[in-house]
């Protein structure tokens, strides 16, 4: 089948997409966007988190065909026209990145959290990001990064 989606603001087509393909596969293998990571294919690790019509979703759990006509934003498109989104900047600055394989998913999840809740407490951050696994950091520096980004977010953020 042919799938047409808006990805990071651009209309994209993919042909010969099979019914069993995931949105993650579509992004990585057909659209040349490997930023979203494949680490479990079961929705357990959150490394493939993208915005799907403004809502964060594990793209490994979404069939590519389901994304027909939808608006997808990936880690590659989080800071259109800028170098970095404040969340991305904070992750580098606070040491929240080690191997970095979980980072794209964390960045999208944290971006969504701060869009919904500009000043989250630690418990809120932990709950909101509990769907993203990190094996390197022990999460302390990721917490730091989210706290730091929260302080820097523009007061009226445009939601994606």
């Amino acid at each position: 089948m042919r799938v047409t989606t808006t990805v990071n603001g651009e209309t994209r087509h993919a042909d010969d997409v099979s019914e069993s393909e995931s949105l993650l596969y579509l992004l990585r293998e057909r659209l040349g966007l490997p930023g979203s990571k494949n680490a479990c294919e079961q929705g357990e690790c959150g490394s493939c988190t993208v915005y799907l019509d403004g809502v964060p979703a594990c793209s490994c759990l979404v069939a590519a065909g389901q994304a027909e006509g939808s608006d997808v934003v990936t880690v590659e498109g989080l800071a259109p026209g800028r170098d970095l989104d404040p969340v991305q900047e904070a992750f580098v600055e606070c040491g929240a990145v080690q191997c970095g394989f979980c980072t794209p998913g964390f960045v999208v999840s944290a971006h969504d959290l701060l869009a919904r809740c500009p000043n989250p407490g630690d418990d809120e951050i932990r709950e909101a990001l509990a769907g993203n696994l990190c094996r390197c950091t022990g999460y302390e520096k990721i917490l730091d990064a989210v706290r730091c980004a929260a302080g820097r977010m523009p007061s009226e953020r445009s939601t994606v």
Binding site: R28, L33, P34, G35, S36, K37, N38, T74, V75, E76, L78, A79, L84, Q88, E89, F91, V92, E93, G95, V97, G100, F101, T103, P104, V107
Partner: peptide
């Protein structure tokens, strides 16, 4: 010093080439 990771920018923007990203 707590120098920033030189690969950090690539990693937070999804542009770092992991072994599973090569094509």
């Amino acid at each position: 010093t707590s120098a920033r990771r030189p690969d950090g920018l690539l990693k937070v923007t999804g542009r770092f080439s992991y072994s599973s990203d090569l094509w």
